[in-house]
Nucleic acid binder design. Structure first.
Length: 207
DNA sequence: GTTCCGATTTTCT
DNA sequence: GAAAATCGGAACA
């Protein structure tokens, strides 16, 4: 049987945690429903030195302080007025770092996810950070919550190196060039970030 | 099929 | 007041 990952699992370099999290099982027991899914896509967010991270510019703020806290906790962020994003805090306390769970493959509670996702099905259930949070019932109320209760991550066999792909991160205002995104190649639940292998779309950009 | 645009809340300057 | 680690729907080809 799988058991919960120890906090020490998260107490290491963030990119390493991001890669090791692939294949692990995310479990949420929010309300009366239990849902679970295999993590198939992650992104690493460092502290300083990472222009795309909330912890980059000005040290600890009310929003990002969870990233500086102890590892093995949830960091939930709300953005664009509609979407939550679920992260897992990494690095030792005092050092900023978190891994964004971008996509999951459902393994349990599919009906609940479908209901929360307003009828969406298949890969549309969880192939994006906002979707994962919604399907798993994650909200700002879970920000800073230690793993092991409502939110858990179970250990699982590691994913082979040959099955792991990396790329630049998606949707960032800056810092998207760093290869800090990890995913299981060929998995249908991995978000494509954008449709097909086209360059970033750059709207609202004119000469 | 692909591409563009708007929604709507929290956080920070 | 402005921007944001996104999503879904509408428009066009």
């Amino acid at each position: 049987m799988s058991r919960d990952l120890a906090a020490s699992f998260f107490a290491r370099p963030t990119p390493e945690v991001a890669r090791l999290l692939l294949g692990k099982v995310l479990v949420s027991a929010v309300g009366d429903a239990v849902v679970a899914g295999t993590i198939v896509e992650t992104e690493a967010y460092l502290g300083v030195d990472d222009p795309g991270s909330h912890a980059a510019t000005k040290g600890i703020t009310a929003r990002n302080r969870v990233m500086y806290g102890p590892p093995g906790r949830a960091y939930v962020y709300f953005t664009y007025g509609n979407h939550h994003m679920l992260n897992l805090v990494t690095e030792a306390e005092g050092t900023a770092g978190a891994v964004l769970v971008r996509a999951v493959e459902p393994v349990e509670g599919v009906e609940v996810m479908t209901a929360r996702r307003h009828g969406r099905a298949g890969h549309e259930l969880t192939n994006g950070p906002g979707k994962v949070a919604e399907a798993f019932g994650v909200t700002l109320a879970h920000n800073g919550l230690p793993l092991g209760r409502e939110l858990r991550v179970l250990d699982a066999p590691p994913v082979a190196d040959t099955a792991v792909g990396t790329s630049g991160r998606v949707g960032l205002a800056s810092g998207h060039e760093l290869p800090l995104r990890f995913y299981i190649a060929g998995n249908g639940y991995v978000s494509k970030g954008r449709t097909g292998p086209k360059p970033p779309k750059r709207r609202k950009e004119s000469a």
